[in-house]
Computed example of a mutant assay.
Amino acid sequence: MSILLLVLAPVACRREAAAPSAEYEQAHQRFSKLYGQLLDRAFLDPQMADIEALLERVPPESLDAQSARELLQRIRQGRERMEATQQETQEAVDSAREFQDLPSSPRTEEPPPPPPPVAQEPVDAGPPDAGATAGPVEGSSASELSSGYQGCFRRGDQINVTGRGMRESWEMADRFSCRQAYPRFANQLVLVEDGRVLSVLAKSLTRLVPTAPDGGPGPDAGP
């Protein structure tokens, strides 16, 4: 009886020998394909989680148990390294963006607005130049006819004003500059009385009357 048992023992040992792991084989194939496509970026790919799950199911007594542990460690270390690199890259980008957002030169405050001008009393420039006005008007000084108005008025004939007698008259000189400066005085007469302009009237309103031998009345400005 004892001889039979010794003969069967080697057969039982061969049946309990370790076998390869199907989980490791599948995980290894998927890892090799994914890493070949993405290289180190594969450690951050979502598919890597399924590969890790397969490696964790490899039986400890399997022929591939040691290889499964080494591959699992490689995947986890690769993920940590890639995450650290990714973080450093993001920090560098954020730092560069902050630098670009800084102003190229220090901001300077705008100068305050100047104070409002102080009101000053108007300076009396004296009476206006007769040459700068629109021409003689009733009541203006007769002296301006000879000294002002750019010299554009000359003495005319004596006019007999009805009810007033003989009065001095002035008319505009026949010059282009005068016609341009005082156009409304063309064909007008300026009558003077007591050193002041009495009236401005059209030449067509005057009428000639015979002149007496003793130098009597001339043109009549009356009705």
Rank of each mutant, 00 (worst) to 15 (best):
Glu83Asp: 07
Ile159Pro: 09
Pro112Tyr: 10
Met1Phe: 05
Ala53Phe: 02
Asp101Cys: 08
Leu5Ser: 08
Pro127Leu: 15
Arg15Glu: 14
Ser199Ile: 05
Glu144Gln: 03
Gly126His: 09
Ala9Tyr: 01
Pro217Met: 12
Pro210Leu: 07
Pro219Tyr: 06
Asp40Tyr: 04
Gly195Thr: 14
Ala22Cys: 10
Gln188Val: 03
Leu208Ser: 12
Tyr182Trp: 08
Arg41Thr: 01
Pro127His: 14
Lys203Met: 13
Ala65Leu: 07
Thr206Glu: 01
Ser147Met: 11
Ala68Gly: 10
Gly165Ala: 00
Gly135Ser: 08
Glu144Val: 01
Ala181Thr: 15
Val11Ala: 10
Ala132Val: 14
Glu110Ala: 15
Arg41Met: 04
Val137Met: 12
Lys33Leu: 08
Ala27Ile: 06
Val209Ser: 06
Arg30Gln: 15
Val192Lys: 04
Val200Pro: 03
Pro128Gly: 03
Ser140Pro: 03
Ala53Gln: 00
Gln87His: 06
Ala65Met: 09
Gln150Phe: 12
Ala130His: 06
Met1Asp: 02
Cys178Ser: 08
Glu171Ser: 04
Glu80Cys: 01
Thr85Lys: 13
Met1Tyr: 00
Glu168Leu: 06
Pro183Asp: 11
Leu8Arg: 06
Met48Ala: 00
Thr108Ile: 13
Leu4His: 12
Ala212Gly: 07
Met166His: 08
Val123Lys: 01
Ser146Thr: 08
Gly135Gln: 15
Glu25Met: 07
Gly151Lys: 00
Ile75His: 07
Ser21Ala: 06
Phe43Asp: 00
Ser140His: 01
Asp64Asn: 15
Met48Cys: 02
Asp157Ala: 15
Asp40Gln: 08
Pro213Leu: 11
Pro127Asp: 13
Glu98Ile: 05
Asp194Pro: 03
Ala42Leu: 13
Pro112Asn: 05
Thr211Asn: 02
Leu102Ser: 02
Ala65Pro: 06
Pro111Cys: 06
Pro115Met: 02
Glu23Thr: 05
Phe31Ile: 09
Glu52Thr: 13
Glu80Trp: 04
Ala212Gln: 10
Arg184Val: 15
Pro111Ser: 08
Thr211Gly: 05
Ile3Thr: 05
Ala125Lys: 02
Ala49Tyr: 05
Gly195Val: 15
Asn187Glu: 14
Ala27Val: 02
Pro60Cys: 11
Asp220Leu: 10
Glu193Ser: 15
Ser140Val: 04
Asp157Ser: 08
Val161Cys: 07
Ala119Arg: 03
Glu121Ile: 08
Arg14Lys: 04
Gln100Val: 10
Met166Thr: 07
Ser146Lys: 01
Glu56Phe: 01
Ala134Trp: 14
Gly218Gln: 07
Arg30Trp: 06
Ala27Thr: 01
Ile75Arg: 07
Cys152Leu: 06
Tyr182Leu: 12
Val11Arg: 15
Cys178Gln: 11
Asp45Phe: 04
Arg14Phe: 14
Ala202Pro: 14
Ile51His: 00
Arg207Met: 03
Arg76Met: 12
Ala202Val: 03
Pro113Tyr: 15
Ala221Phe: 02
Asp157Cys: 02
Pro106Asp: 13
Arg74Phe: 02
Gln77Met: 09
Arg79Cys: 01
Ala27Arg: 00
Pro136Trp: 05
Ala22Trp: 11
Phe31Val: 13
